[in-house]
């Protein structure tokens, strides 16, 4: 199952895109409660939103984005049937991508 959930909602002539990504977003400063060892950094470094395969938002993130990142963006000129793609890459080079089609 994909780590990325995407929801869209038409607001006037704009399209609101909400996304929730399952990711630990460890910044490398937290300690494990039992072993008291530092938990290694593991966070998304890059998040990209594409509209019909054209990049509309590209971002660099840090470990100070909360666990299970949630974002809302507002896109213009999005029509029924259009494809929204959201993808991420983390500092361990893991990645995921998800397509969402506008109703």
């Amino acid at each position: 199952m994909s780590s990325i959930k995407i929801r869209s909602k038409r607001l006037g002539d704009k399209m609101q895109i909400r996304t929730l990504i399952a990711h630990p977003m460890e910044n490398g400063r937290m300690r494990d409660k039992d072993s008291d060892q530092l938990i290694p950094a593991h966070f998304i470094q890059e998040l990209i939103v594409k509209h019909n395969d054209k990049t509309v938002i590209s971002s660099h993130l840090s470990g100070s984005i909360s666990k299970d990142p949630y974002f809302v963006f507002m896109l213009n000129n999005v029509n029924s049937g259009d494809k929204i793609t959201i993808s991420w890459v983390d500092n361990l080079n893991q990645f995921d991508s998800e397509d969402h089609f506008i109703k």
Binding site: K14, N27, H51, K54, T55, V56, I57, S58, S59, H60, L61, S62, G63, S64, I65, S66, P69, Y70, F71, V72, F73, M74, L75, N76, N77
Partner: peptide, 22 residues
């Protein structure tokens, strides 16, 4: 680490971002 995130927005995107930060 003061910088939380940086976003590049294209012309088709409003200056509107919701996020959850630490």
């Amino acid at each position: 680490k003061p910088l939380s995130a940086e976003f590049n927005l294209s012309n088709d995107v409003d200056f509107f971002i919701t996020a959850r930060i630490k």
